[in-house]
Structures are given as C-alpha cells and as structure tokens.
Design a protein around this nucleic acid. Structure first.
Lengths: 228, 228
DNA sequence: CGTTAACTTTGCAGATGTTAACTTTCCTTA
DNA sequence: TAAGGAAAGTTAACATCTGCAAAGTTAACG
C-alpha cells in the first residue's frame, strides 16, 4: 500500500520525478571532482541512486550527458563572473569604471578556474565532432560561451569612454579573452600549477595590465607585425 | 638457427633493441591521433608489435608512459617554434627584429596547436599529482615548458631595444605566453573551433598586436587596475 | 656455462557503453 | 470508475576495453 507513496516514509518512488536535472547535477559534481573523464553514465546514475539504463530515457548516450555537464559548467562560470561584477562598485570616471569591470570579469574568470578546475576543464571541452553545426555566426560562439557577452558589453563601454582605440575594437573580445583564458589554463593545468598565491596575483595583474594597455591606442599601434 | 637473426629475414628478433624509444614514438603517434586519452599501455605495445607487459620493462606504469609522451609532445612544439624562428630573416632595426621574432614565436606556437591538436593537448596535460616537486623555481617551469626559454630571450632583446618598458619586464613572459596559449586553446578546443582561415589569421594578428602594444610602456601604463 | 635482462603467455579484476526485454506507475480516455 | 496505453524505471546480459601481476621462455653477455 505504501508503494506509491511519493512523500517521505521509506523507499523512494519508482518515478524519480526530476531525473534529468538530477543527472545533470550529478554529472556536474562528477566533473567538479574528477574532470570531464569522470562524467560517465554509470557514475551519474550511481550518484542519483538509479539504474544506469534509466539514464537513456533522458540522454541519448554518454556524449549527450557530457554535453549537458559542459553547459552546466559554462553556466556556473558565467554565474561566478556575474556575481563578482555585481559586487563591484563602479569607479566615478566612465573609462575607469569600464577598465575596472573588464579586470573584474577577468579576475572572476580566473577565480572560477582555480576554484573549480574540474568544471573549468569540462566547460571548455572540445565540442564532440558530430554536434557541430558549421555556423560561424557570432551568436553561435555566444551560445557556447556566455562570458563572451560580458566581454562585448564591457568593451563597448570601454570604446564609448574613449579608451579603446576604434580600429582595435573588432577583435578586442578575442584578444582579451585569449589572454585571460590562457592565464587561467596555465595556472590550472600548466606549468604554473603550484604557484604561491602572492606570485599568482602578480601574474594576474601583469596579464590584465597588458590587456588593458594593449587595447588602448598608443605609440605602438603601428607595430611592425608582418603576417606570414 | 635463424632465430637469433637481428637483421632482415622474417621474424623480428626477440629483443627489440630500442623498445623504449619505439614506445615513446608510438605513444606520441597515439596522442597525435587521439589525444592523451589514447595513450594506453596496450595500444602503444600493439603499435610496436610487442606484448603489453613488455612495456613494464621500460615504464613503471601507464602514467609514466604518458609522462614520456607529454615530454615528447612538448619537445615537438619547441621544435616547430625553433624551425619557424630560424627561417625568419631579421628586420634591420633591432626593435623591429625583436618584435618580429616575438610574433613569429607566437605564430609557430599557434600553428603547432592547430596542426597537431592531439599533441598540443598532451603537451599541456596537467601534471599528475604525485610527480609534483613543489619547487617554484623558474628552472622548473623552464624544464616543463621549453617555449618559455625562447620567450625569455626574445623579451630580453625587446627590453634591450628599448621597446619593452622596464617595469613591465618581470612578468612579461607570463602575460605574453598567456595570450598566445589562450588563443591557441580557444582555436583548437574552444568556441572558435571551426573558424574560417581568414578570420583566424585576423584573430591571431589582433592578439599578437595586443601583446606587443601591451608590453610597451605607453600612456596607459598607469591604468586603474585595482587589485581585489 | 650460468646469470640476468628482455620479452611472452596467461589470466585476473574492474571498468565502461549499450541493447533487449520486463515491470511499475501514471495519466488519459471511454 | 475501470481499462489500457505510454512513460519511466529495473534486471540481465553482452562486448569491449583497461591496468597490472605471476610465472615461464628466449637470448645476450661476461
């Protein structure tokens, strides 16, 4: 008689009710602890307390589950950045404020990478060849990587404030993103793996400084950069 | 009577003679095609035409083999950069020449990443916790990542030529490296995965431009970068 | 001729993804 | 309100991969 009880009282109901989300959460937790490789059908099912095959009611296969975990990870990265941006009090001068926000976004990005290396790696897993829609639209990049949106906004502000040189605007997102992402990767996985906190902060500042300086027009705008 | 033949004539000799190197090569090839995950004891042994257990005469375990593959990958990356640097004819002006070499190194770095994504990922595998000697010495970084050496040299030249602002010198390696590495990662694994060649070149130029500009002292050297 | 290094055979123990067929529950419909 | 179909689980099983250890075999070398 108690078999259909969906409230408390012993055995969980036959129907989970929200299994898909539960699996995504479990997958995220697995990624958090063991990186992308830890995201397996069986482990996720085990974590939720469900049979492996039940997973196939909600995901086509393991790649599909991993894909969901990737999106979840990316969302959390975006959330961390947003939180940090929201907690900043803008500087009075517009240009200063924009620069400050750019730096804050970068710091949030790196902070997330350091705090959640497993999720960070998962968020930037190479897209499984097969779900590739060959659209080169910016919207595609944006959908794949929400942080891009903040960058665009901040850089527009920076441009409006007269800091960012007009001719540098087009690919500024990429350049700034590359620097921040690269530093994050080097700190998390790379040779800077175990690096004292104080030195790490210095490196972050140096890199952000280079970005800010490199995006402003300056005496070096006509650098002799020969394409190959 | 022919069983001990080490020359041609049919069956390979019982003793391989250079199994360790052969396995490293095989591991590199595996990494080339399938990334780090493809580097397994059995696959490497299979590729060489040897029993899996034979591997244990030369490597302690799978992690050890993978470690060797990682070093091999890093060496090839360094080789690619060196080759490209060697083929550049230096510009007359010292500063120009230094900037040119910095850009060339960056291009070589990214070129390798795009041409050999599997090896590139393998080269920057996070160091397996356990072989971590907590030395923060620069020499450690250098040993782990030969490209660092070129960077140091080039940046010294840049400094000597008066381009690189003195106060920016200390962490210039990291900042420049971060930008180039980040772009490489974004292009190989990240959202820029399938990106038309022409756009890709533009992004590379934009990023390298930012680096060069960002390392020179300029009007923006006193950017309002508040530490957190 | 014997010691020893290099390699093979055999085999275990543990993962994984995925399919097929069955069962329980819910929800709609007559 | 009872029936019946569809949805969401479960059990069982297959095929395949992995690392690794123990013990035997081959050949090289002093």
């Amino acid at each position: 008689m108690n078999s259909s009880e969906s409230s408390d009282e012993g055995g969980r109901p036959y129907h989970h009710g929200d299994l898909r989300n539960a699996l995504v959460d479990a997958a995220a937790t697995l990624a958090e602890e063991g990186g992308p490789d830890a995201v397996t059908i069986r482990a996720a099912a085990r974590a939720v307390g469900v049979t492996p095959t039940a997973t196939y009611r909600h995901f086509a296969n393991q790649a599909d589950l991993l894909h969901a975990a990737k999106h979840e990870a990316m969302d959390r990265l975006a959330g961390t950045i947003l939180d940090l941006l929201a907690s900043e009090k803008p500087a009075p001068h517009p240009a200063e404020a924009a620069v400050q926000r750019l730096a804050a976004a970068g710091r949030g990005y790196i902070r997330f990478a350091l705090a959640q290396p497993g999720l960070f790696r998962t968020a930037f897993l190479r897209p499984h060849s097969g779900d590739a829609h060959p659209s080169t639209e910016i919207s595609a990049i944006l959908a794949e990587a929400p942080p891009y949106a903040f960058l665009t906004t901040v850089l527009d502000d920076l441009r409006a404030a007269g800091w960012l040189a007009p001719e540098l605007r087009p690919d500024a997102e990429t350049a700034a993103w590359a620097a921040v992402h690269g530093l994050a990767v080097l700190l998390v996985d790379g040779p800077y793996g175990d690096c004292p906190d104080t030195e790490r902060d210095r490196l972050i500042n140096a890199t952000l400084g280079m970005v800010v300086r490199g995006l402003s027009g300056g005496p070096a705008s006509d650098a002799p950069l020969n394409a190959e």
